[in-house]
């Protein structure tokens, strides 16, 4: 074990005095300048072979750790409590969730573009609304301005949509093994309902521009299209074995 030594403290004191002297009195800096090499010398001497370390005697027997003994209760009670997770032997791969998210995202985009055409606002309108989350200048834009093509908004809109679609798909894929059966029900009905509720609550905060203009019927329809497509893609994927499956 390393021997106790005050040299590190002296070195730290020397450095501090060097700094403090700049603000108070040069004498302090001079003291620091003396202490630093002194402490370094002392420290280095302790690193020489045969110095600065010692063989530590064991503490008295009654102070030593007692041997760990197996627990009195060997098996954890089964009813209502397990100390290990129970997982299915085979699950849909997480990558299927990402693929499902991408396919669902494409479907969702088709619905959003259809809304732009049907409503007469044009195909760029929904893209610009989405990009408004990151583009403060859209806060004061008119409907006509939002209907115009904007390259930066297209890039931001695509990135946001792609990330959220793939990310939500990944979450869905990861969560699926913990949900009871019927992937399409969870992906196509329950998840869009929860997601829409959350978005309804937060949209005013995350994207005030979209919040003022969103057509909720179309928005909800697009969520369901996303969920159903993502669910179908995941369900059609081949299940893979879980590493370590079969544990108690």
């Amino acid at each position: 074990m390393p021997l106790a030594t005050a040299w590190p403290m002296v070195l730290a004191l020397g450095i501090t005095l060097l700094a403090a002297g700049c603000l108070t009195n040069w004498a302090m800096s001079i003291a620091g300048a003396v202490l630093v090499p002194l402490a370094l010398g002392g420290w280095i001497r302790e690193l020489l072979p045969g110095r600065g370390e010692f063989e530590h005697a064991r503490v008295p027997a009654h102070e030593r750790p007692r041997a760990v003994v197996p627990a009195a209760v060997a098996i954890a009670p089964a009813a209502g409590f397990v100390h290990r997770m129970r997982l299915p032997e085979k699950v849909h791969p997480y990558s299927a969730g990402v693929r499902g998210g991408i396919v669902g995202g494409i479907g969702m985009a088709v619905v959003a573009l259809a809304y732009g055409v049907v409503s007469g606002r044009g195909i760029w309108y929904t893209v610009n609304l989405l990009a408004a989350m990151l583009m403060p200048r859209f806060a004061t834009a008119t409907d006509a301005e939002l209907a115009q093509f904007d390259a930066l908004a297209l890039v931001f809109g695509l990135v946001i949509h792609a990330l959220v679609s793939a990310g939500a798909g990944l979450c869905y894929g990861v969560l699926l093994p913990t949900l009871p059966r019927w992937p399409v029900l969870w992906g196509g009905i329950v998840a869009p309902l929860l997601w829409t509720g959350a978005v309804y609550g937060f949209m005013g905060v995350l994207n005030p521009v979209m919040n003022r203009r969103v057509d909720w019927q179309w928005f909800i329809a697009s969520q369901f299209v996303y969920g159903i497509l993502a669910g179908l893609v995941v369900m059609r994927s081949e299940k893979v074995s879980v590493r370590g499956a079969g544990i108690s």
Binding site: T5, W7, P8, L11, A12, L13, I15, T16, A19
Partner: peptide, 21 residues
Amino acid sequence: DMAFPRLNAMSYWLFAFGGTL
């Protein structure tokens, strides 16, 4: 112990003296 026990001590003292300063 830590990889560098003496450096460890110096680190503490620099923090303590820095705060005091």
